[in-house]
Simulated assay, not measured.
Amino acid sequence: MGMKNKITMLDVTLRDGSHSMRHAFTEQQVRDVARGLGKAGVPYFEVSHGDGLGGSSLQYGFSKVDELKLIAAAREEAGDSKISVLILPGIGIHEDLVNAANAGASMARVATHITEADVAKQHIELSRNLGLETVGFLMMAHMAPTSVLVEQAKKFESYGAEIVYVTDSAGALLPHEVSEKVRALRENVGCKVGFHAHNNLSLSMANTIAAVEAGAQFVDGSLRCLGAGSGNTQTEVMAAVFDRLGYKTGVDLFNIIDVANDVVAKFMPRPQEITGSSLFMGYAGVYSSFLLFTQEAAERYGVDEREILIRLGKMKAVGGQEDLIVEVAQQIANEQAVAK
């Protein structure tokens, strides 16, 4: 098969994977992963708290090691790979992004809810002023029609974003929906387009293929699927599949499999399986990073975690509303007590 267009892979193991690791990456783990990703030729990989720069907190979970130290360590090991960071307006502030750039970041991905791109203007402008490649990251993309996605992407582009992402934070999108959204962005914005998947419905690889076939130039993955919920598109699988499909990624297949199996697999706290809970996240459209919080609340109040997730989905809860998880669990427990 003749080679098709080049696509750019971005690995999020050291950021999205922080959710599964309870934000407890050690410096040595980050160094080992960064070295492996660099050796494999992955052009970009992300290092931040799971909820982005400044996310280490009581609400989201404290980092075991300061993220700036991890970014600097990754930069020392990354070779030709570039370091990306995630920042959410309302969590990360001006100083966080400046410090990340000084620590070695080359790209900033500014993430907002699908309908709230306007809150990112200052962050986008700051990122450009710092000389960082700048990305607008539209999360929970399943929660708004494609016309709204396009409208919000145009805002990101007007602020200076060089790439805009369709971000399936809940792993809820189906392949035809991904195709529609990515194609609409390619037709309506001048910047590049990316796609970030979660595997809660076992569709992350299929959705990533659909995104690329619709014109996405950037695609995310994580080694061994290490990420929130059931994880992301598996980076090493993605490299193999796109090679089979004739796309150029520049990623060495042997080396990317080695870092996945010889490094990441050894420190993963659990296999990234599609469990009943993570499946319901995709089914109900719930933010993937809610998984561990939901399991803890279900155990604490003696209720079914699936019921919590269904209700959160109906409430259209989004990132930053983690406090609702406990409230819903308490409500279900009270209802069950009354019913008895």
Rank of each mutant, 00 (worst) to 15 (best):
V193L: 09
N199P: 04
M281Y: 08
D258S: 02
G54Y: 11
A74T: 01
D323E: 15
K316W: 03
N5R: 13
V328K: 10
L291Q: 11
Q321E: 15
A214L: 01
E180H: 04
H196Y: 10
A141V: 13
L223V: 01
T115D: 13
V259W: 01
M315E: 15
R75L: 00
S158H: 12
V263W: 06
V338D: 08
D118E: 15
G285S: 12
H113Y: 12
I124T: 08
D80T: 07
R300S: 14
M268V: 04
S18E: 09
L86Y: 02
N102I: 03
M238R: 04
E162Q: 13
L70C: 05
I332E: 10
Y301K: 09
V166G: 02
E95H: 08
A329Y: 02
S169L: 10
P175Q: 08
E305Q: 13
A105C: 08
K154D: 06
S48W: 05
E162L: 00
A184T: 10
Y60R: 15
K39H: 03
L70W: 06
R311G: 00
G2D: 01
K266N: 09
R15A: 05
T249Y: 05
K248M: 06
Q217T: 15
G38Q: 02
I71R: 08
V135Y: 08
S81M: 10
A329C: 03
G36V: 10
G131A: 01
D243S: 14
E180F: 01
Q336I: 11
M139F: 14
G231L: 02
A260D: 03
F242R: 07
E296Y: 08
N188A: 07
K181Q: 07
A34E: 08
L70P: 04
R31E: 07
A265Y: 12
R35W: 10
V251C: 10
S127V: 00
S56M: 05
G36F: 01
K155R: 15
K248F: 04
M268K: 04
S277K: 04
Q336W: 12
L291P: 03
K248V: 11
E157S: 06
M268W: 02
S20P: 00
G320T: 10
L223Y: 01
G231K: 01
G2P: 15
V119E: 12
T249L: 07
S202D: 09
K69M: 08
E27F: 00
A100Y: 03
F62K: 12
E46G: 05
L149I: 14
M140S: 14
G285E: 13
A170M: 04
C191Q: 03
V286M: 11
D118L: 11
M107W: 06
G160C: 01
M268Q: 04
M21R: 12
Q152V: 15
A161N: 01
I163V: 13
P271N: 05
L223D: 00
K82D: 09
H142W: 10
G131D: 08
K39F: 00
A103C: 07
G54C: 10
G285V: 12
I7Y: 13
V30W: 07
G136T: 08
M3I: 09
L88M: 14
N200T: 06
R244I: 07
E67Q: 12
Q59I: 14
T146D: 04
T13C: 01
L70R: 08
S230E: 05
V164F: 11
